[in-house]
Computed example of a mutant assay.
Amino acid sequence: MELDPRDLDKISAVTLQHYEVHAEDFRIGTCDHDVTQNIAALLRHIEVETPLTILDFGCGPGRDLKAFTTLGHRAIGLDGAEPFVAMARDATGCDVWHQDFLHLDLPAEHFDGVFANAALFHVPSQALPRVLRQLHATLKPGGVLFSSNPRGANQEGWNQGRYGVFHDLEAWRRYMADAGFVELEHYYRPAGLPRERQPWLASVWRKPVA
């Protein structure tokens, strides 16, 4: 069913409200999550000299923003939940942009990398092509996007107050290719477990050099 802009905005607003209400619980519950595998996957594919300019898309309370900064990179956060924006700024001292995923205002060809860890699955499938094109446009030529999403059979809808889309690999590949990206690698997480116990699909993509 085709959603009109008001429907999409409501989906985003309700999801953000969930995070705003539970911001502190989310910060405590995720602060020790180990995503070093994902950070390394992004950084090893970026082929320019450091320090890099990285957009942490859906930065939440700032855990990964801090990790990029500690590694010496110029990191900018972006989140739609106002409490997360404040937490991330306080925790890292980084610039953090308060932007709804469905209403992005991003500079052209500005970033060497985009780190979208557990973020893009909140974008309704109808809006995803536009959002991916915007992320493609904000990357420098040759820039790299990392994404990690909970995987599924392309079902879409509400789960505990949040909207999500659970893509399989083939569907995700189509979305990314249509937006102009070239696949570099993909893997499932957590590492070292049987596939049925790996609910996360991670993938890395390049914006080609024209």
Score class of each variant (00 low, 15 high):
1 M>S: 13
2 E>C: 08
6 R>I: 14
6 R>T: 14
8 L>R: 00
9 D>S: 13
13 A>S: 15
13 A>R: 15
14 V>C: 02
17 Q>K: 13
17 Q>P: 01
18 H>M: 09
18 H>I: 07
19 Y>H: 07
22 H>F: 10
23 A>N: 09
26 F>S: 07
33 H>W: 15
38 N>P: 10
39 I>R: 10
39 I>E: 07
42 L>N: 10
47 E>K: 13
51 P>E: 08
53 T>N: 11
54 I>R: 00
57 F>T: 00
57 F>D: 01
58 G>E: 00
58 G>V: 03
59 C>W: 01
64 D>T: 04
65 L>S: 02
69 T>P: 00
72 G>A: 03
76 I>Y: 00
76 I>C: 06
81 A>R: 01
85 V>A: 06
85 V>N: 04
87 M>P: 01
89 R>D: 02
94 C>V: 09
100 D>T: 07
105 D>H: 13
106 L>P: 06
108 A>K: 15
112 D>G: 04
115 F>M: 05
117 N>Q: 15
117 N>P: 11
117 N>C: 15
120 L>G: 01
122 H>C: 08
123 V>N: 05
125 S>K: 09
126 Q>M: 11
128 L>A: 10
128 L>R: 10
129 P>I: 06
130 R>L: 13
132 L>W: 00
133 R>Y: 03
134 Q>W: 08
135 L>V: 08
136 H>R: 15
136 H>M: 13
137 A>S: 13
137 A>Q: 14
138 T>C: 15
138 T>G: 05
139 L>C: 04
139 L>A: 09
144 V>D: 04
145 L>C: 09
146 F>T: 02
147 S>V: 12
152 G>Q: 01
153 A>D: 14
154 N>M: 08
154 N>F: 08
155 Q>K: 11
157 G>A: 02
157 G>E: 00
160 Q>G: 12
160 Q>F: 12
162 R>N: 02
163 Y>T: 00
166 F>E: 06
166 F>D: 00
170 E>S: 12
170 E>M: 11
171 A>N: 09
174 R>Y: 06
183 E>T: 05
184 L>R: 12
184 L>S: 08
185 E>A: 15
186 H>A: 09
188 Y>Q: 14
188 Y>R: 14
192 G>S: 06
195 R>W: 10
197 R>T: 14
199 P>A: 05
200 W>L: 06
202 A>V: 04
209 V>D: 13
